[in-house]
Design a protein around this nucleic acid. Sequence first.
DNA 1: GCATGATCATGC
DNA 2: GCATGATCATGC
Length: 477
Amino acid sequence: MSNNLPYNPNDPISIRAYAKHLENRTLRQLFGDDLQNNYSGKGKLGQLLEELYFNYKPNSNAEPDFIQAGLELKTTPLKRISKGLVSKERLVFNIINYEEEYKLSFVNSSFWKKNKLLLLIFYLHEREKLDIDYIFKIVRLWRFPITDLKIIIDDWKTIVAKIKAGKAHEISEGDTLYLGACTKGSTAEKSKRKQPFSEKLAQQRAFSLKSKYLNFIVERSFEGDFELPDINAAYNKVLESQHDLLEGDCGDLPVLTDGHEPVIKNVSEYREGQTFEDVILEKFEKYYGYSEREIVDSFNLDVNLKAKNKNYVFARAILGVSKQKIEEFEKAEIELKTIKLEERGTLKESMSFAQIKFLEIIEEEWEDSYLYATLTKRFFFVVFKKDKHQVSRLFKVKFWTIPYSDLVVAEEFWGDTKKKIQKGIYNQFWKLKDHNIFHVRPKGVNAKDLMRTPQGTMEKKKSYWLNSRYILKQIHQ
DNA sequence: GCATGATCATGC
DNA sequence: GCATGATCATGC
């Protein structure tokens, strides 16, 4: 069969050139209406492409899909929002074999072996269409730029460190920045897997890229930037140094308009052994003790001190990112939150998240719930503390991910909230004084700001809150 | 003084 | 118009 292939299986460029013909087409256009009868059902698009278009049988090998070319095929959806097209979901790679992955160095890891070089095919997901009618929008080769690869290697090491510590069951997507370990497969007890350094069974997980990270690839592609980073001496050096350390055209589509600028432009900015987060902390430490006003003056900032994004403006200035968003924070979906301590070190205010959507929560499962998605992110706390003149000064910053044991409490909290909404009880949610970590409280524009309930009635808008005492404890750890 | 309800201000 | 970061107001 292989000598009849419409592409050279040894050559990624040839495969890409062939794949490019998919752009702005659908499978139905390429293969006719018969498809509809033979292949209906969801999640089949990637398999159809492999089988029909590229002429190989889908497999679950540890090797890349195009073995000789060292190229892995990934088909992934876009969705339309008002601003344009964005990634619909995270990109999921291979399942993590807890019993094996920790034995390897990054360069020999299952992730790197399979995913060094990717053929990415983005299609536009539209709810009302069959998958054979989805339009392919972007076809491109992808290799991680060197500054991203550095972060990905550190992420991989973080995941492996948890396996080694017997904590595979405690892994969270919020542990890492770009390369995540997302849950994959049924959450049922029977689908859990063994881990090497603990008796506890762990949820099955796969390596993944956050959907915000994919948006950068999407944006670049729409801008016509299809460049592949060279595998040069510097690229190999990043890979090798980790090895030593370890031992163990898209037509008229609108594009994203937000600009971004990375904090770290060159991997040489890392000192030996430093991670991205180390570098960030170091930059902030220089401004500990500065008042908001002094930060504004130091950087000549034009910022309204009442603006809700002021802390983001401060962070950007301190990190040396001039006008635009912080690329690494965006890609990693880091939630920046401000905390204001009193002179005595107490914390008056709890921290709110977005509203509870009464109509949505009753349809949710825990792992696809809004609360789960929010809480499993990585947080970046920027802590201010009042001095004896009641002037607020930068006190510390901290990267934080919710501990696993508290995420278990979150599930109970969420379950309780959901159950009460299902029953139509809106005044008996967890309260601040009754529980240690979470509570529910009103949060609308005013008392007349209501939201429809599953019972058809209207209730005051409410939010999930993190208790102030809990936050205080977390920032001091 | 604290828990909880309520609302302001801003930006998308 | 609305979600959300931030903070105020009230009552126990």
